[in-house]
Structures are given as C-alpha cells and as structure tokens.
C-alpha cells in the first residue's frame, strides 16, 4: 500500500479495506487467534469454547426506514458472534457522543438497542460513554463487543467450504444499503424497502441444532454478497459459482441500483446469512429457514466447485459466466 492517508475506500469492506487490515493492522497484533481471520475470535477458557466479536457503528443517517444506529449496533455484533456457530450472550457498548446531541434521540437509540437485545436474547452488561466537542464526531458513534458460547459439537470456519456443497441465502439483497443511502441520493423508495437489520442468533441456533454439519456461516455485510463469497473462496481454496437468476433482489432495489450505477451484489445487508452445506442437507436447511421469520425467502443461490480456486463466478441470465470479484474500493454513483 503506497498511500499515506486513510481514504473513505478503506472503510468500505472491499479489497482496499482488506489490504489495510491485512497489511497494516493485523501485523501490528499478530497472534494465532487473530490469524484465523474469521468474523470473530474463537478461543477456549476453562474448557468453555467462546466466540468474541466487535464492531463500530457510524451509519448516517442515524434513523432510517427499518431501523436505526442502535438496532444496527446490537444486531450487527450479535450476528457476528452467531456466525461463529455460537449463542450470543453478552454485549458491551461504548458511546462517543457529540456535544449538543439530542437526549431524545439518545433515548430513542437506547430503546431500540434494548428492543433488539431482548429479541436476540442478549444482555448489555457493561459500557462506556464519552462526550466530545462539537464537530469531533458526527452525532453519535457506537461500538459494541459481544461474547457467546460456541454450540457443542459445532465447528464453523471459513476454511470448511468444500466442492459439492450448496450455498443457501435467506432472503433479499441490498435493502439495508438502499434504506440508508436513499436520502443522500435524493431517491424516494417505496415503503417496502426497509433495512433488513435483524438478529439472526435464533435462526442460526435452529439450523445448527438440525444440521450440525453446516460447514460455513457468514453474513454478507459491508462489501456485499460478492465480497463475502470471495473471502470464503479464498479461505477454503475452492471455486464458487452462483446463478444470477436465483439471486433475490427486489425490483425497487434493482431500480435504485440502475439509477445510481450500483451493483446489488456489493451492497451491505444486515439481516442476511449464507449457509454452506452438503447437498443432502439442503432440503432441511431450506425448510428451517422458510419457517423462520428471517428466512421466508431462502433459496439455493449457487454451489462450491474445485475450480477455479479462490474465484467466484456468476452465471448470468443469458448463460455466460463472469468473474465476480471482491469489491475494490467503495461504490460511487456514476453516469457512465
């Protein structure tokens, strides 16, 4: 990396973000647990297998259709922990609040957090609040860290994808990203487009109880479906092919993407998860997902193959295959 300054692209979750973490941040802390490169850390304390994860939330606007920064802060970390095959238990929260921030807004956010925590079955047990001068942060930033107990007998790891497995997605893509950015881009979205922000711990637990051999679980957040699939393809050293006709994107989300020049496969989701599992278990996984409130639109979107190693391909509606690369920097609205 030859740039001397952090750019917005470094926060986008794409390749540039990855490079920052891989080349500058990880080496500073190098250790075996970090080296696993999973969504969260997995370790054993006194015989108990635990998963531990953290995330910071800086979303603007603070309140958007389908959620707010508080709900996001709880669900995001709950989901990160759950993706380790763990039951999320406790969260910490850190607030950095700008001088002048409305206490009413703060109360709204806190209520949102508690509602999400209650649904997720987690407790917010410790925290910290800092206030900074006007201008030092934009409104409010929230960090949450979560800890959970890995379900007995479960080993979820990004390296476990194997040729022949099906890839299953629980629903529509891009709604969260659009709900958050619509105001900024002067788009008025139909009521149906709301952030999909949701706690997935319960769905994960149901799936693992029925199909303990699920190989990989991951939530396609920043960087979108494409980036997440690339990460897994690289970690597991497999190839992945997904079918364009099977990828669920609503008309409105597709339209907004067409207007701005975005690709829905690279948009962030906050209530979606990917399951990699041996084909024989696919019907069971689908059954459980579709019966769950957060999985009604579940479907198989692709399969894992031997080759090409580390690459993700998209079979298009007309039958061609194109390389589906990782997000490079951030997606910008374009006219070309």
């Amino acid at each position: 990396m030859s740039v001397a300054r952090i750019q917005m692209a470094h926060g986008s979750g794409g390749k540039v973000s990855h490079d920052l973490v891989k080349n500058i941040i990880w080496p500073a802390f190098a250790n075996d647990i970090l080296g696993e490169m999973h969504d969260g850390a997995q370790f054993v304390i006194g015989g108990a297998r635990l998963a531990f994860s953290t995330d910071s939330y800086v979303v603007k606007p603070l309140f958007f259709p389908g959620g707010d920064i508080g709900k996001l802060a709880v669900c995001g970390t709950v989901n990160d922990v759950a993706m380790n095959g763990a039951v999320p238990l406790y969260l910490s929260v850190g607030f950095v609040i700008e001088e002048g921030f409305s206490i009413e807004d703060l109360k709204r956010i806190l209520a949102s957090m508690q509602e999400a925590a209650a649904e997720a079955g987690v407790y917010i047990v410790t925290g910290d609040t800092k206030v900074v001068e006007k201008g030092a942060v934009d409104g409010i930033f929230i960090n949450t860290a979560g800890i959970g107990k890995i379900i007995d007998g479960i080993t979820i790891n990004g390296k476990n994808a194997k040729p022949g497995q099906d890839i299953i997605l629980n629903g529509y893509l891009g709604d969260h990203a659009l709900a958050v950015m619509s105001e900024r881009h002067g788009l008025e979205l139909p009521q149906s487009v709301k952030s999909d922000c949701a706690p997935l711990g319960d769905l994960v637990a149901s799936l693992l109880a029925a199909v303990p051999s699920i190989a990989v679980l991951r939530d396609p957040t920043r960087g979108g479906l494409a980036t997440t699939l690339n990460e897994i393809a690289l970690q597991s050293e497999v190839g992945i092919i997904i079918e364009e006709k099977d990828i669920p994107v609503s008309l409105a989300v597709q339209a907004a993407c067409d207007i701005l020049g975005f690709d829905p496969l690279y948009l962030a989701n906050e209530g979606k998860l990917l399951v990699f599992v041996d084909k024989e278990y696919t019907p069971q996984v689908l059954k459980i997902m579709k019966a769950h409130k957060y999985g009604r639109e579940a479907r198989v979107i692709g399969t894992v193959s031997h080759a090409p190693c580390g690459q993700v391909g998209l079979r298009t509606g007309i039958g061609g295959i194109r390389l589906l690369d990782m997000l490079m920097g951030d997606q910008l609205p374009r006219i070309c």
Binding site: G239, P308, Q311, G313, I321, R322, L323, D325, M328
Partner: peptide
C-alpha cells in the same frame, strides 16, 4: 474486474 483472462472455470 470481469475476468477476461482471469476466469478459468
């Protein structure tokens, strides 16, 4: 980006 020369599948 779209793989001409890189997609080997």
């Amino acid at each position: 980006k779209y793989g001409a020369g890189r997609w080997q599948g």
